[in-house]
């Protein structure tokens, strides 16, 4: 388990991070395999975003070791598009290499927004802006996609559509992903494996064995859901 093989895109060992006297991460170990979608669950303030920023290389003050193989892209809860660049320019931001226009248009087509390439971010709805953020990540052809509650700010219907979109993109591109969410259903629908962050460590590492295609009303889903909610210390719903 400790040895890194070529099939792992990200390995973290003994990751620690504290803010002042508050220890947020206290020795996190995790491994993400190539093409594997891992959901990261945890209560609010448990350090999910902190961990994701460390994996993305955005935190210079964490200790421990993080090794990432291949390219990484990040999608945040907010779209974080540059308001002064049109959609296509936002997607192309920092992308090097030839046939840029074609690649950008292809990425926008994949998220269904080819016709909005010349729009300003301010002209998009929340769901559209988040789809552009996905296109901006996809155009980099990442081996690892880091997602921090990417649908957390969207309304329930848009969120369902985005979950479908995510499944489709994943099937096409085969990227690995660390998917931070507080939504147990979302984790069970999309992930191959679920991690629960608690007390600054990975308290639970649980493969999701539900058959594809998954649905919240498929047999076995409810039971798995109850287990995860129990791990998150959410009392079972009154019945």
């Amino acid at each position: 388990m400790a040895a890194r093989t070529a099939s792992q895109v990200s390995v973290a060992r003994g990751v620690r991070r504290s803010f002042g006297d508050t220890v947020v991460l206290d020795g996190v170990d995790l491994t993400i395999g190539a093409g594997e979608v891992v959901a990261l669950l945890g209560g609010s303030g448990s350090g999910k975003s902190t961990l994701l920023r460390i994996l993305a290389g955005l935190d210079g003050e964490a200790t421990g070791s993080v090794t990432t193989t291949g390219s990484t892209a990040v999608v945040f809860q907010e779209h974080r598009l540059l308001p002064w660049k049109r959609v296509a320019a936002n997607v192309a931001l920092g992308v090097r290499g030839g046939s840029l226009r074609e690649r950008v248009d292809a990425a926008l087509t994949e998220v269904g927004l080819a016709d909005r390439r010349d729009a300003w971010p301010a002209e998009l709805s929340g769901g559209q802006a988040q789809r552009v953020a996905f296109a901006r990540a996809l155009v980099r052809e990442p081996d690892l996609l880091l997602l921090d509650e990417p649908f957390g700010a969207l309304d329930a219907l848009t969120r369902l559509r985005m979950q479908v979109l995510f499944g489709r993109l994943r099937a096409t591109h085969g990227f690995a992903a660390l998917f931070v969410t507080h939504d147990v259903d979302e984790a069970l629908l999309l992930a191959d494996r679920v991690l629960v962050l608690d007390g600054g460590r990975i308290a639970e590492d649980r493969p999701v064995t539900l058959p594809q295609p998954r649905a919240v009303d498929a047999p076995g889903f409810g039971a798995e859901r109850r287990v995860l909610l129990g791990l998150l210390n959410v009392p079972a719903s009154p019945s």
Binding site: L58, A73, V74, F76, R80, G94
Partner: peptide
């Protein structure tokens, strides 16, 4: 600051 961070993840 979040935009700067996003730009960093885009490799700028």
């Amino acid at each position: 600051e979040r935009l700067v961070e996003a730009a960093r993840t885009c490799g700028l």
